[in-house]
Amino acid sequence: MNIFIGGAWPYANGSLHLGHISSLLSGDILARYYRAKGDEVLYVSGSDCNGTPISIRARQEGVTPREIANKFHREFCHCFEKLGFTYDLYTRTDDLHHHEIVQKIFQKLLANNKIYKKTVEQAYCSTCTQFLPDRYVEGTCPHCGKDARGDQCDECATILDPLDLLTKRCKICGDEPAGKDTEHFYWSEHTC
């Protein structure tokens, strides 16, 4: 039997900790089990080298996001080798082949009406002249009144929208962001 195991892709923005390893270990155990049974296994994963956590870390350290991603991808590979993980392929989201495959999938979904554009309001910092990912917005939780990030309040565990925060501020410059319309792609109802 052919078995495909797609492991989680950890953000390449900081060292792996026990929680990361415990969430990744189940894939390796499954791969070993099926290989021991004689099945053909393709066990893949990689470092998520894109995204807000990497950008935040890069800004904090005064380096490029690519430098952060490179550093932690190398560290992840070393850790997985030392721990004896048995990936058939461990890659990264910023590799050319990854971009090509994702673009092909995106184009196919778009052509088959599986995704659609929708205008939504998002936090925008006019000082930094950019839309702000949820983790770039901080403020006061409207539910408990404690400090919170734009994605969630760690104090009361409420999932938040950045624009719902009270006394919101841009994590980069400290100015107050405003709501501004922008287009995003969404899964159509019949896709999920």
Rank of each mutant, 00 (worst) to 15 (best):
M1G: 13
I3M: 09
I5Q: 08
G6E: 12
G6D: 07
G7K: 03
G7W: 05
W9H: 02
P10I: 01
P10H: 00
Y11G: 01
N13A: 05
G14W: 04
G14C: 00
G14N: 12
L16I: 07
L18M: 12
L18Y: 00
G19P: 03
I21T: 03
S22L: 09
L24W: 02
L25N: 00
D28H: 01
I29G: 00
I29Q: 05
L30I: 10
A31D: 02
A31T: 07
Y33K: 08
A36M: 15
K37V: 09
V41D: 00
L42R: 14
Y43C: 01
V44S: 06
D48N: 02
G51I: 04
G51F: 00
P53W: 02
S55T: 13
S55W: 10
A58L: 09
E61G: 00
G62R: 05
V63T: 04
V63Y: 01
T64I: 02
P65Y: 00
R66E: 10
R66K: 13
A69L: 01
A69H: 05
N70Q: 10
K71V: 03
F76T: 03
H78Q: 15
L83G: 05
F85K: 09
D88W: 10
D88T: 07
L89S: 13
L89H: 14
T91S: 15
T91R: 09
D94G: 10
D94C: 11
D95M: 13
L96D: 11
H99P: 01
H99S: 11
E100Q: 11
E100P: 04
Q103C: 09
K104P: 05
I105F: 10
L110V: 01
L110E: 11
L110F: 13
A111Y: 06
N112I: 06
N112S: 11
K117E: 08
K117C: 02
E121H: 05
A123E: 03
Y124H: 07
S126F: 06
S126E: 12
T127I: 04
T127D: 11
Q130W: 01
F131S: 03
F131E: 13
F131Q: 06
L132M: 08
D134T: 08
D134H: 11
D134F: 02
R135H: 07
Y136T: 03
Y136G: 04
E138V: 15
G139C: 01
G139W: 09
C141D: 06
P142T: 07
C144I: 08
G145Y: 08
G145E: 14
R149L: 15
R149I: 12
R149V: 06
R149M: 10
G150E: 00
D151T: 01
Q152C: 09
C153G: 00
D154K: 13
E155A: 14
C156R: 07
L160Y: 06
D161E: 14
D164K: 12
L165D: 04
L165Y: 03
L165E: 08
L166F: 09
L166K: 11
L166S: 05
T167G: 08
R169P: 03
R169V: 13
C170G: 06
K171M: 15
K171I: 12
C173Q: 10
K180H: 07
T182N: 14
E183D: 15
E183L: 11
H184R: 14
W187Y: 13
W187S: 13
E189K: 15
T191L: 15
